[in-house]
Amino acid sequence: MGDAAFWILAVGAVVTGIGVFQMDSMARATFLLLASFLCGAGELLLLGLGYLGMVIVLMMTMEMVVMAVFMVMYMMNPAGLMPMTMVHNQRPATVIAVVTFAGLVAGILLTPWPERKGARPMDSTMQVGEAIMGPQMLLMIVIGVAILATMIASVVLATDRGRYDRYGDRLERRRPDDPIPGGRR
């Protein structure tokens, strides 16, 4: 049962992954990529890593939905349904992809994987939490601050209207002057 599920998900992940590059529609390509990720998440669930598997389902679905919007915007004509192609620079790209895939597979097969020491934990979620909040706490704090700084910086760079545009040069307006009102009126 577990073996059958593993192979179905594994083959499914590769086939949908290849399918991404066969499509002439950005929407289809994006959701095939999502299907590939969901197969990967299924493998994690098979390993008993419930939390990590479900977080991949949650995050990847959100990311692919957002990606669909942007990729349709950048790569297709505005009407969206005109054919397009997913591959550019085809021959070198194929070579790079095949070599990378072969390298990764060789790595998987040639690595002397360690045997399991100790019993499987009752609650893998707790173990992930302890690993993050325990020995890796410093790393997570640094990453957290870096991500927050990146988010703030990118929003500051992207926005064309700051608080001085909204509240006046001396921040004297009590209500913001917005082209599209955003709630506080």
């Binding site: 419930g50 479900m54 949650l58 939905v65 669909a68």
Partner: peptide
């Protein structure tokens, strides 16, 4: 009664956005 039931529920809700967009 999955040990990550709450996350499971949220993930299924997010799949609905994808479905409606499709």
């Amino acid at each position: 009664d999955l040990d990550i039931g709450v996350v499971w529920f949220n993930a299924m809700e997010v799949l609905v956005w994808a479905a409606l967009w499709l």
